[in-house]
Each structure stands twice: as C-alpha cells, then as structure tokens.
Design a protein around this nucleic acid. Structure first.
Length: 153
DNA sequence: GCCAACGTTGGC
DNA sequence: GCCAACGTTGGC
C-alpha cells in the first residue's frame, strides 16, 4: 500500500464536498499536469491519501481518503463546456486520467502548511520542496506516520 | 494582488 | 533542440 497527498482548492472541491458526495466517493478529475497524472497511474485501490486544501486562508492537510479505483480516462477533458477541456485529449487516445476516491475521515484538527514546515523530520517532503506546484504527490510511510502523530499533538 | 517557480508552447 | 514568451500554481 502506498500513501499520497492530493491538493484541492476548497472553493472548488473541499473535504466536506467529498464527504457529502454519494457514498462519500468522487472522481478526482481535472488533473492536467503530466507528473501528477503519472503519480495517479501508480495508485492502487486501498492506497491512502491526505486531502490538502490549497489556495485558501489556511492551506494544509484536512483529512484522509482512500483510493478505490485505479486510473481511467478523465471525461472532463473531452467536454468543450468543461473548464478542464483539452482538445488534445481524445476518447480514442486519452491524455488525462483520474482515480476514484472515498472519504475516510477528517483530521481532528487542521495541520497547516506552516506547521508542517516547522518539523525538520518533514523537510524532505515533496510538498515542502521549493517551488513545488504538484497537485498529486507521494508521501512516504515515515512522513505519513509522523503527520498522524502530529494530529494528536 | 503580487510574485517566485515551474511547465508549456512555438519560432527558429 | 534551444530558449524566450507566456500561462499557471499557490503561498503570502
């Protein structure tokens, strides 16, 4: 089993939006970055991911979700009316993919980006690397456990 | 709204 | 294949 971190702007799709989706499940669509896409392709059902709120007053980790379906073509790329439409992605040769995720739980408290930065144990996290802009990235097991311990602090 | 950092595009 | 211009991300 692998661990991940996935960003979403809460104004667009928040952890509560996921929780309130049918069955607590939703497709993670709209990813339009090759590196993020490639990470999604490494995901397997049963993997766990931190839900991260970005571009908001208090960016940080807000909850945990489970990957429940491996990547399949992102249909929003085929829809000219969709904001993530990409004419270069065609149904017979899809460029963009998505996974399905299921809400597991909210963290007991928000663990902010600024808090994460204060822990040398997390300094090598991909999230904290300079200029990081990836919306989907791996988290190693030591980092995952360390962050869950922070939740209780 | 600003800006640093990075990805993408397209001319050559 | 280089690289300048441009667009996007995302923290602040």
């Amino acid at each position: 089993m692998k661990y991940w971190l996935m960003k979403s702007e809460p104004d667009a799709f928040s952890i509560d939006d996921l929780k309130n989706s049918p069955g607590g499940t939703a497709p993670w669509d709209g990813v339009r970055n090759y590196q993020a896409r490639n990470f999604m392709r490494e995901m397997s059902p049963g993997d766990l991911a931190f839900f991260y709120h970005s571009s908001c007053a208090q960016p940080g980790i807000v909850g945990i979700m489970e990957i429940i379906r491996r990547t399949y073509p992102d249909a929003t790329a085929f829809n000219p009316a969709d904001e993530h439409y990409d004419p270069k992605s065609r149904p017979d040769n899809p460029r963009w993919y998505m996974v399905d995720v299921r809400y597991k739980r909210a963290l007991k408290r928000l663990i902010t980006l600024s808090e994460l930065k204060q822990h040398p144990e997390l300094a090598s996290m991909q999230l904290l690397r300079r200029g990081n802009r990836l919306s989907v990235m791996p988290v190693n097991m030591a980092e995952w456990r360390y962050i869950l311990d922070l939740e209780r602090a």
